[in-house]
Design a protein around this nucleic acid. Structure first.
Lengths: 337, 337
DNA sequence: GACTCGCATGCAAGCGCTTACATCGGTGCA
DNA sequence: TGCACCGATGTAAGCGCTTGCATGCGAGTC
């Protein structure tokens, strides 16, 4: 591996000048810079990140803490982060936290503290106080996407509003008997998103003068299969007979569509179905949804961190709301049409 | 941030001993090691990866070069890598190569050469000679998953065999008129997997004494939607009338199932459908497939690299075949049942 | 013409670890 | 008892860069 002194020799300057020329500092004459760049190019020189990091204290690397890699929402979000981060010439190192307590503790207390990264993006994790403090104590820019977090700067989405918007859409189409597939109350302890959506659902109903009926609710696990099972349950329940279903995720909504079809319902003629997320399959299934633009969420978090790194002047804003948008497609219609 | 000398002072030993104790070297007495560990724990000391890397030349970090983060196959594979790598206490840094030529060149010629990683896993990329050589010249263990590659150690899957196996299954069920959704010949230049599967398909037919009929082929883009479109095309074509369809991916097969249902076919009574991949949705759609275990592919590549890193004795085997397995479910049946 | 100033460049001291080598007590054996 | 040997520990020289400070030089100022 060629080192900086070889380049210095080749360009006839000191290593200090090579370092300055290559890292784009402004106090190098143009001619020198060109000569250095040409020499570096010719010799195939690339700075060693460990040496550079040690000397400068900057790694040009962003840590991403993420609970799942193989779920659509997360991988899409990660993709958004990756694009933005790569564009800025930074690398990404991945910390895939599993449900395993011990491993999770290790990520926060050890892995992230190895000074391998300049900043951290924590994706859709419900962080405990210890974990939040661990992130804070890293002494570097940190941003959380998702759950509200008192201690950390957060890019959060209004899950109550998301649920309300989807429900209001169904109400606006004249539906009064709306089923809901969502939060299993069991999970609520450390995963609040689904129950927020459910609150949005119920508050929209109440605002329209409708009392939520327990028999119109069915828990689901956020997969297509789970939505399918839940919808069969809901639609088969005596006395339930909803004219619309709001599922707390697009994957469950798609499962519900398939279940409805299975049971002989025509969507949307007999049953309207709406979801949340903006899943890529939504277009294919012609699913009405509230899009939350996960790729853009990732890109935005990345941009915020990068900005903070380049201009430490403005600190990360404490709390920012992410946009969402109702996308009306063919799975919902006015009642009775 | 506490440094190694604080720990040394607290434990009453030299920094050398701290380093040895913490990195699990064997020439430290048990009592000293405990004292050091206790002190490190108490002070919250974690070694700085850049300092450690610079001094030792080892980063404890694996680079993963991957073309998509948001496609099921890739994210599942990545998930497999992550689990294995994390278990060994290594980090992962992600190099998400995009179709952009310039960016791609940068990844191979610059990013990977920053000495940030100890080894590289290149996932399902068709690497050009320049790129292969760039990886080789890194002077570290490298492994490619997917395409056959003359120059690099490869974990490859027999795509011809995969296609043949799926086809043989359909033949064994008595099908003679088998449609195929797969390789768009246009893509063949830098993406050979689908055409290998197609070759497998055709060779199985020929071995059974059947000549492939061009009207029973339709290109697809590996998405559900693409499979849906292709199946409609294929099933609507006058004179085609297949009794079975083999799609080169599960996502296309699922699209084909939905299209068939749309057109009034009963699956498998009127039409058998088989795919390839082992997609998580396959179980839900009761899809017969040839599973290629992507998560295990990732885990295996990771294990190979890690092993090589720990025991540089045995070098990475040049070429290893990945296993695959026919999973028969309800989407295929004997003809005429 | 002497002096100041600013810019380009060089010098050299680290950044925080790892590790080859030296040192120092024991142990075991003749 | 003396000597070789071995395991635990310390000493200190880097690892390959970055950057504060010093230097030198040409231009601008009075």
């Amino acid at each position: 591996m060629v080192g900086i002194d070889e380049v210095a020799r080749a360009a006839g300057v000191s290593t200090a000048t090579v370092s300055r020329a290559l890292s784009g500092k402004h106090n190098v004459s143009d001619s020198t810079r060109e000569r250095v760049q040409e020499a570096a190019q010719r010799l195939g020189y690339v700075v060693s990140s460990s040496a550079s990091s040690l000397a400068s204290g900057r790694t040009r690397n962003i840590g991403v803490v993420i609970p799942h890699l193989d779920r659509w929402f997360f991988s899409t979000l990660l993709s958004g982060i990756a694009e933005e981060v790569t564009r800025a010439g930074y690398d990404i190192t991945l910390y895939n936290v599993t449900p395993d307590r011990e491993h999770r503790r290790q990520v926060f207390d050890t892995f992230l503290r190895r000074q391998r990264v300049d900043g951290v993006i924590a994706v859709a994790l419900e962080l405990g106080e210890h974990e939040s403090r661990a992130l804070l104590s890293l002494g570097m820019p940190v941003i959380a996407i998702g759950g509200p977090n008192e201690l950390l700067p957060t890019l959060s989405i209004d899950d109550v509003g998301l649920g309300r918007l989807a429900t209001e859409h169904l109400l606006a189409m004249g539906h009064l008997d709306i089923g809901h597939i969502g939060a299993d109350p069991e999970f609520d302890i450390d995963f609040h998103i689904p129950s927020s959506r459910r609150h949005g659902f119920e508050s929209a109903l109440r605002a329209a003068g409708i009392d939520p009926r327990p028999e119109l609710f069915e828990p689901g696990d956020f997969t297509i299969e789970g939505g399918f099972r839940a919808a069969k349950q809901l639609l088969g329940r005596p006395g339930a007979s909803p004219t619309a279903i709001f599922a707390a995720s697009d994957e469950m909504a798609i499962g519900a569509m398939l279940a409805a079809r299975d049971l002989g319902y025509r969507v949307p003629t007999d049953l309207s179905i709406a979801g949340i997320d903006g899943h890529e399959l939504g277009r294919f299934f012609d699913l009405t949804t509230v899009d939350q633009f996960p790729a853009r969420q990732g890109a935005r978090a990345a941009a915020t961190i990068l900005h903070e790194l380049e201009q430490p002047a403005g600190s990360v804003p404490d709390r920012e709301e992410l946009p969402y948008e109702l996308v009306v497609r063919g799975s919902t219609a006015r009642i009775g049409t």
